[in-house]
Amino acid sequence: MSDTATTTSAIEDALAAHAAAFSGSMQPKTQDGIPVVRVPRDQVIGFLVAARDDAKLRFRLLLDVTALDHYGQPRDRFDVVYHCYSFESRTRLRVKTSCPERDAVVPSAVPEFPTAGFLEREVFDMFGIRFDGNPDLRRILMPEDYEHFPLRKDFPLEGIEPEKVYRKHGGVMMPRATGAEPINGARSDTP
C-alpha cells in the first residue's frame, strides 16, 4: 500500500493539473480536508475518467452522485456533486459542476461508471436534473407518475399529494375521521 500511496500534496498537484486540462479549477478544501474540484458540465465525465485512470490518483470508486439547489441565488441553479474514492491513497475527492434551471441536463457517468445508474436516477427523481446518456432514467423513490421534484427548494415542505394515485383508484379518497368517535385513550368501548 505505502509504495503506491502518494502524498497529499502530490495528489493535489495532479488534481490541479487535470482540472486545468478540463477547464476547471481547484476550490477550497472541505473542513475534513477533501479536495474539491469544479469543472464545467461538458467536461465533468472527462475529468472523472482522468482522475480514475491517472496512476497517481486512481479515484476508481464513484461513491455518490448528489445535487444542490441554489434556488433564488444569482447563479446557476443546480450543482451536481460527485464523490470519488481512491483505494490506493485512501483519499476522497469531490467534483462539482453546475447547470441552469432552464437546461438542467448533465452528461451521464453511466458509460464510464455503471454504479452511477441508480445514483443519477435518485438525483433526477429528487431534483429533476436529467442525465444525458443514462439508459434508464426513471424515478426511483417516488411513484412513477409523480409530477414534482421534492428536494427542490421551491417544493413545499409538507409535500404535494399525487392526485394521479388517487385517480388511479377511482377516487376512493376517504373523508378524514373528523366527526368520528372522540379520541379517547381511556375508553375502549367506542363501537
Binding site: A177, A180, E181, P182, I183, N184, G185, A186, R187, S188, D189, T190, P191
Partner: peptide
C-alpha cells in the same frame, strides 16, 4: 381488535355500509 369485534356485532363497519370509525388507545 376487540373494538372491531364490537363494531362487527353492531354492524358499524365499512363492510356493512354504516361506518363509524373508532380511535382506540390502551383502553381502560
Amino acid at each position: 381488535l376487540l373494538t372491531l369485534q364490537k363494531k362487527i356485532d353492531k354492524g358499524n363497519t365499512h363492510a356493512s355500509g354504516n361506518p363509524r370509525p373508532a380511535v382506540v388507545g390502551l383502553g381502560g
